[in-house]
Write a protein that binds this DNA or RNA. Structure first.
Lengths: 351, 351
DNA sequence: CGCGAGGATTGAAATGTTTCAAATAGTTGG
DNA sequence: CCAACTATTTGAAACATTTCAATCCTCGCG
């Protein structure tokens, strides 16, 4: 007969209480929880009954204090609002939940300081690993964390020369695909709505675009007009149009991601600029909604779910500290998805 | 001169090491960290120098063991892939990060078992609070957790009779708005692409739709044809069209959310059904991309950022266990956003 | 010169686990 | 009936903190 008289017990139950209730030692209770095969059947039953009767819930921090690393991994993104991350997250979550790992989500909001702050907290929590899309260009602090024993995998960012594992999509190649596509349609003046060039992905896509222009025997300086947005949101995408002379300016717009393209599309419609006739537009990422936009958006597809899954996988091996594992880099290839917004069957851009 | 000879020290540093290095007791080190005002200036300097020199990082689990509750709150969503949650998350994150709280993200994938599993882990971690969109209809287990001292706030779900705080948008009202809009355009046969009715939001929106139909003096059984989707994804939205006799069937489609509407739009286009002329379509949530779809999507707007922010706020007061705080419910009002997909200026649905 | 006040520091208990060597009980073979 | 095992169980140390009563100084004042 378990009978709780106290209306609201102050102290939470511990294994000591369970042990007393079941008439065994704490060591045995611990064994029931962690190595039940060592415990005799009847004892097992009895202890389990006590646990249930008392409503005992093990204390994870205490466990961890003794045991070592935590069961949560950190995932740091630059902006949770970005649908790209939303589509990568399920891939990560799927893999982590298989390992019964908790996912601690941090958003650096593109601030190096906030990133540093969160990293510090994660280290204090003794997480076994961190999956991160760094806010800044310098990743030496990440290498340092890795050296201190925290698994570290760069997400959507090449590890390059550094000692870090990385999972990325080839952004230079993506930029090339986009550039080549627009050039093949006859465009010779391309507006590039880009993010800040300290963001690696942005810089790489620009590089790819330039490569494509040069490959066509043209001068990037002549062909490409870049507008740098402070943030990759629809609002900024729309606002960026102001800084671009629409008439007599570019005949095509390459947006550094679909979110920006969405804003651009909205803005162009308001200004009565027809897409793709007056202006071709393409995005990047091929997020879920790209195909359903008006007009449907040509984009560069990234295997987002796979990206997340592979990153999680790599993090698992990295944080296990498997011998024989040094840094590894997985690079996925982007894919050009042609849709209406670039009017692929266009003879020559108007005017 | 701090000189580390060991190539890779096994044991991590603890406050004991810092104390030794600085020539003080551990108690003092602790004071430096937690109540620096109690410590004499020179000592403070010395200890801080030692911390830096040794690279000491406090151990959060140990801290918590002594101190009590953790600095992480749980956020349980039904599906991280759903853009609705993506747009709610920033609101939550903003508020939590102000309190220097970590956000542990759990996705129940609409499984009651997975939800229960995660809740158990969160309880073990002694989180001070949980923000949750429950997977099932029964929330008694949540009330129980609350009783055990874990702050609990229902997200996007009315707390109703129960003892829980809740932040929600009035889904019945949303359904009414949608229904009234379609009816006012002359539609008399409405297809409703709904989710499983155990999901509260789905059931409520249906109820609202029926209300609107009745308010117009009509019989919901005649007007509404519901198709129940197993999951609220574009894919399922598209597939659902098969189960609806498009010709001679409904003249309008109400989709339980924008993600489903996106799929429906895609499917209708493939089948050559013109929107809004042959079929009016509306969604729910008014997510970021709704305005830019082809055609732009009429939807029911929910104040998503506010929703997240308010939920986090409520959770903070609830987990502080402030006296004078009992359960509180915040209900936001949805708003009808009319766009092209319902062809608002339509005389009468064709055929 | 002695005393008390008050600031600074210390030492040890307490937190809830896990782990492991040692103790105990139970069983089998001789 | 004992020895030698084996299967269980136990008790205490260890983990890294925080907290708090107790101690130690150092001044200032009478």
């Amino acid at each position: 007969m378990t009978d709780i008289h106290k209306p609201a017990e102050r102290r939470r139950l511990s294994m000591v209480d369970v042990a007393a209730h079941a008439g065994v030692s704490v060591g045995t209770v611990s064994n029931v929880l962690n190595r039940p095969e060592l415990v005799a059947k009847p004892t097992l039953r009895r202890v389990r009954a006590s646990i249930k009767a008392l409503g005992f819930v093990p204390n994870a921090p205490a466990r961890q204090l003794r045991g070592g690393a935590s069961r949560s991994v950190g995932v740091m993104v630059r902006d949770i609002g970005n649908p790209f991350f939303t589509e990568v997250l399920p891939g990560i979550e799927t893999r982590l939940s298989q390992e019964e790992l908790l996912l601690v989500l941090c958003s650096s909001s593109d601030s190096v300081e906030k990133e540093a702050y969160y990293l510090q907290i994660l280290e204090q929590h003794r997480v076994p690993g961190i999956l991160i899309t760094p806010a800044g260009d310098d990743i030496s602090h990440l290498v340092e964390l890795r050296r201190r024993g925290i698994g570290m995998v760069l997400l959507d960012r090449p590890g390059a020369d550094s000692q870090l594992c990385a999972v990325a999509v080839d952004n230079v190649r993506g930029g090339e695909l986009a550039g080549a596509h627009l050039l093949s349609l006859g465009h010779r003046r391309i507006g590039f709505l880009n993010g800040p060039s300290i963001v690696r992905q942005c810089a790489d896509r620009r590089k790819g675009l330039d490569n494509a222009v040069r490959a066509a025997g043209l001068d990037p300086g002549e062909v490409v007009t870049e507008v740098t947005l402070p943030a990759l949101t629809p609002r900024e995408g729309e606002a960026a149009l102001e800084r671009l002379s629409l008439r007599g300016g570019p005949t095509a717009l390459f947006c550094v991601n679909d979110t920006v393209a969405l804003g651009a599309l909205r803005g162009l419609e308001q200004r009565g600029v027809g897409v793709p006739h007056d202006m071709a537009v393409m995005g990047y990422d091929d997020v879920e909604f790209a195909a359903a936009l008006s007009p449907s958006l040509t984009s560069i597809r990234q295997p987002k779910h796979q990206l997340g899954h592979a990153a999680a996988e790599l993090l698992l091996t990295d944080s296990r500290g498997d011998a024989g594992h040094w840094h590894q880099e997985i690079v996925f290839q982007p894919e050009l998805i042609i849709r209406a917004s670039t009017g692929a069957s266009l003879s020559r851009p108007g005017r």
